[in-house]
């Protein structure tokens, strides 16, 4: 049994690299997802994931399958869309979700067009679904660096960020940190999606950010608890997904995300904070 779980990682370097990459992503993407969920911006993560595509595509067109060019392009495109959407929301009648939807759809269409004009469909699939089993040193280094930076940044902005989600008006009244916190948070979202798309692809990167976070709400009643559960979930799903991919010969990115999804459904059923089964069970109410 243990052999089955450990053998692939002992035997193959590419499996070990994939594991390290996934674990590094799992360390910071889920906490960011927790804040996205708490700010009711879950779908914003999804939109940003799509927005990254044209940048990565331009990087690919200019420099071929170069990790650096594609990451830089994706980062620039994601940041541009996030900032433009925020700016439009603050200066016009549009709400942030509507303006973001506008920008990301344009961005996505542009990305698909760019990739299909020059590349083949296989390339498009690489960008969309990632290549976790072919992570080279440079990719691992990039992912690890992003994880490190994100972890430190999250620790620094933790309190203002919680307050920005919970009571933004109060934060604005006691501190000038509201806007910087919001901007830095958007930056972290984009950075982590860029890290994620190296391994899981632009579409799947959002999955490891959001699914563990959504599931965590069924297990914890405070932010730090949710973050803990989300990170643990992402770790477990990474290992499960990689093993599934190895033994069943299915693509890795979707396997990892499906493992997250399985845990989400399980949490929805048996989670101790509002899971469906607990609600169905007739239990007498308490004294107070």
């Amino acid at each position: 049994m243990i052999d089955t779980l450990v053998q692939p990682f002992i035997e193959f370097a590419f499996m070990r690299r994939a594991l390290v990459g996934c674990l590094a992503i799992s360390l910071t993407a889920p906490p960011i997802g927790v804040f996205l969920v708490l700010r009711r911006m879950s779908l914003m993560g999804d939109a940003m994931g799509h927005a990254i595509l044209p940048g990565a595509a331009i990087g690919y067109l200019l420099a071929g399958l170069s990790l650096f060019a594609m990451s830089l392009g994706g980062f620039a495109a994601g940041l541009a869309v996030a900032l433009a959407a925020g700016l439009v929301a603050r200066s016009t009648v549009l709400r942030e979700d509507a303006s973001l939807a506008g920008f990301y759809l344009v961005s996505l269409a542009l990305g698909v067009m760019l990739v299909s004009v020059r590349g083949s469909n296989v390339d498009l699939l690489h960008v969309l679904f990632g290549t976790v089993l072919a992570l080279d040193d440079a990719a691992l280094l990039l992912i690890a660096s992003i994880a490190t930076v994100s972890l430190v940044a999250l620790a620094v902005i933790y309190r203002p960020l919680v307050l920005e989600c919970f009571d933004p008006e109060f934060l604005r009244s006691v501190s000038p940190l509201s806007s910087p916190t919001h901007l830095l948070f958007l930056l972290l979202v984009v950075l982590n999606l860029v890290a994620g798309f190296q391994a899981l692809g632009t579409l799947m990167a959002v999955g490891i950010m959001l699914l563990p976070a959504v599931a965590a709400r069924f297990w914890a009643e405070d932010v730090s608890g949710m973050i803990g559960v989300a990170v643990a979930t992402a770790f477990a799903a990474s290992v499960t997904g990689l093993l599934m991919s190895y033994y069943l010969n299915v693509p890795t990115g979707p396997a990892v995300i499906l493992a997250c999804g399985a845990f989400y459904f399980l949490s929805m059923l048996v989670g101790v904070k509002g899971g469906v089964l607990w609600r169905l069970m007739p239990r007498k109410h308490l004294e107070a």
Partner: peptide, 25 residues
């Protein structure tokens, strides 16, 4: 009030934020 009442934070933590001027970020 823009407060998100479904936010998972305790009454103690919420009130403690009133100390922002002394504890800061």
């Amino acid at each position: 009030i823009e407060i998100d009442r479904s936010f998972p934070i305790s009454v103690f933590d919420c009130v403690a934020m009133g100390l922002w001027r002394t504890i800061g970020a």
